[in-house]
């Protein structure tokens, strides 16, 4: 009996904050509060993600990482707060956003095929009854090829491994042809080859001038993959370029706890943290 996210009362989306969100940011959040029951999962968070960069949202389990992403997208209701995508409210920027939900959030026993799932990324463009054009069908196939899954198009999705499921979800986001890619734990429970393949695709997106924001939990790969980090533990702890923000002090402030200290020591030894 876990209570769902509660919208205490939909206020009109405006907020209190440190100035208006910059219009050139692909994703700017101001004063966002989300609660499950009477406990804030995310409290009064401001965030500004940069263009043409890969950003990671980092924090311990239950720190509100996924909640932040979902509330920003309007998948779950907010208590208060404002979200701007390229300077416009998120509701009017749907065409510019692609979303990769957590793999475990859907029933993989659903009766459908891989190519069908990828084509779902085109549903907004083709509408309810529009026919999928030849070009669009080819585009879906092409997106599958970009994640190395071209041969799997006619497969039933229940037959896929975890890594393959994640690639299919990424292909669906690619089919959306957006400017901002939001990914919820894209590397959770995937094999090393898939992780490499996904990172390559994301870096290519960045090279094309797109913005990528991912909820991420593996501290050891932050430096290798990302340009910008956002540290969260219900509150915003820090945000900025990896070089200056992904520091031991900030990680201590985000994670706390002895286990995390041990992890940090290991990371320091590995040279992942200064």
């Amino acid at each position: 009996m876990t209570p769902g996210p509660l919208s205490v009362a939909a206020q009109d989306g405006r907020l209190l904050d440190s100035g208006a969100p910059p219009p050139d940011s692909p994703l700017a959040i101001r004063g966002l509060t989300v609660s499950y029951g009477e406990r804030p999962a995310v409290f009064s968070v401001d965030a500004t993600f940069p263009a043409r960069a890969m950003s990671a949202i980092i924090g311990p389990n239950g720190a509100g990482k996924s909640t932040l992403l979902k509330a920003a997208l309007g998948v779950i209701p907010r208590v208060t707060g404002e979200v701007r995508v390229f300077g416009t409210p998120v509701e009017r920027a749907r065409d510019r956003i692609a979303y990769v939900p957590q793999r475990a959030s859907v029933d993989w026993d659903f009766p459908t095929t891989v190519i069908d799932v990828v084509q779902m990324g085109l549903y907004r463009k083709v509408g309810l009854l529009g026919r999928m054009s030849g070009a669009q069908t080819r585009r879906a196939q092409d997106c599958l090829a970009r994640v190395g899954m071209a041969d799997f198009a006619p497969r039933q999705i229940g037959q896929l491994s975890g890594g393959q499921q994640q690639r299919v979800f990424l292909a669906r986001a690619l089919a959306q042809d957006a400017d901002l890619y939001l990914l919820d734990e894209p590397f959770a429970g995937v094999d090393a080859a898939t992780e490499r393949a996904i990172v390559e695709v994301l870096k290519l997106l960045r090279a094309q001038g797109k913005a990528v924001v991912a909820v991420h939990h593996d501290l050891s790969t932050v430096r290798g993959y990302f340009d910008h980090v956002f540290l969260i533990n219900t509150r915003r702890i820090a945000e900025g370029p990896v070089a200056t923000t992904f520091t031991a002090a900030n990680l201590h402030a985000t994670y706390g706890g002895r286990l995390a200290v041990a992890q940090l020591d290991a990371l320091a030894l590995a040279g992942a943290v200064p």
Binding site: Y99, M120, R124
Partner: peptide, 19 residues
């Protein structure tokens, strides 16, 4: 058909499409 399918398979994703 398309709305039913996607809202049944992946409700969160459907919402981000504005469905």
């Amino acid at each position: 058909w398309r709305w039913l399918k996607i809202a049944t398979f992946d409700e969160g994703f459907a919402r981000t499409l504005g469905i």
